[in-house]
Design a protein around this nucleic acid. Structure first.
Lengths: 206, 206
DNA sequence: TTCGTCATGTAATGGGTTACATGATTAC
DNA sequence: GTAATCATGTAACCCATTACATGACGAA
């Protein structure tokens, strides 16, 4: 996660499912987006604050879940609870608001830009919230983008093949292969999106 | 190019070959790094200025290359040339200094971090300036990193496979396949790096 | 008692992105 | 004559990164 404005979508998307505090959110983010996206605290917490200020999130009043076990003796002096003492630990749990839901939907649908790998990945992770046509539109935009890039790779290679060393050549060749593999993957997703007539029956015809 | 501090290396590396002005540099950058790295003016020019101020680059006195053709009549009033009038067009040509060469070498060799895709790509594009052992070290670091990431992918999938939808699953599966393909590629590079005994003779033995 | 995980933040820094602004030259 | 390319820059915004700082809890 190096690009700006990339956190809002997955934060809202995850909180849509279930209210969470920052720490847990980060874990879920990691699980959902894979090991290449590590979110730093310095970007997560400010994002939560920003979204809260914007009215997309609200803090949940943590209802003192079964008071810390009286095990340790030294916790007695704390009876005059200041705010934020709440449950055993101080946890800031966030819940998405209806305004946040709208924002999420808007960000997710906005087919405009978002053809680059990172935006696309992020949206794909929340495809279940989109309608099939929108999914197809997104997939096809991404495919078109990749096809353009592939062509640019080829032109590049055509124009410069003589002047580049073997390492750079390898870089380009592998880049092209990866792009082709990505395109094939997208096409598979497109096929799957079109194929499974939502009807339950899938017998015969083989 | 979204990460900070990513431009210095390729700028120095390209200027090592041949002095250039900003516009041309960008073209070369595009040709070398492929269609996924577009460099914006707003980052290139400030980088050139920064590197110049740091003593890594110097502006070349463009030696008024054959004075603009006298074709157009209205260019006569310009005889009292202020600085930067120089050649036909105003072009700021940059040349790398010995200090810049050192900086480049240091940045390139620094095997420390730079395991992520972007740093690695950048370094690979200038592998010809490194010694075989350093190249191998870099390649092996990158491979180790990818292997760790692959394992994390697998753990992730093991722990969450039940809870994720088909799109996210596809995302992960494709991510793993890509990572495996990257590893295979790196291993190929490692093999090539070890194999070709620099000796000229390659006869017999088949 | 100490280490690892849980948990939340703040501050500075840095530089990339976007948009804006300008003007010469070349090709159609 | 007008569009595209060449060529260089500036300024504001934005936010991710890094490093710093704190503290409770559970287990070894």
């Amino acid at each position: 996660m190096k690009q700006p404005g990339m956190l809002e979508l997955p934060v809202l998307g995850l909180l849509k499912d279930k209210e969470m505090h920052g720490y847990e959110l980060r874990k879920q983010l990691g699980a959902m987006l894979g090991p290449f996206w590590q979110v730093s605290w310095g970007s997560l917490y400010p994002t939560l604050r920003r979204l809260t200020k914007a009215g997309a999130l609200e803090k949940v009043e943590t209802e003192t879940p079964r008071r810390a076990r009286s095990r340790s003796t030294r916790s007695l002096a704390r009876s005059n609870a200041a705010p934020a003492l709440s449950g055993g630990r101080k946890k800031n749990v966030y819940r998405i608001t209806s305004q946040g839901e709208e924002m999420f939907a808007a960000m997710l649908e906005e087919t405009a830009a978002a053809v680059d790998a990172e935006h696309f990945t992020l949206k794909l992770a929340f495809f279940r919230y989109l309608q099939p046509e929108t999914r197809l539109a997104l997939l096809e935009r991404r495919r078109a983008y990749l096809i353009v890039k592939l062509a640019e790779f080829k032109n590049n290679l055509r124009d410069y093949r003589e002047r580049i060393d073997s390492y750079t050549l390898s870089l380009h060749t592998h880049g092209m292969a990866s792009t082709e593999s990505d395109i094939a993957w997208i096409e598979e997703l497109i096929t799957q999106e079109r194929a499974p007539r939502t009807g339950a029956a899938e017998t015969t015809n083989v």
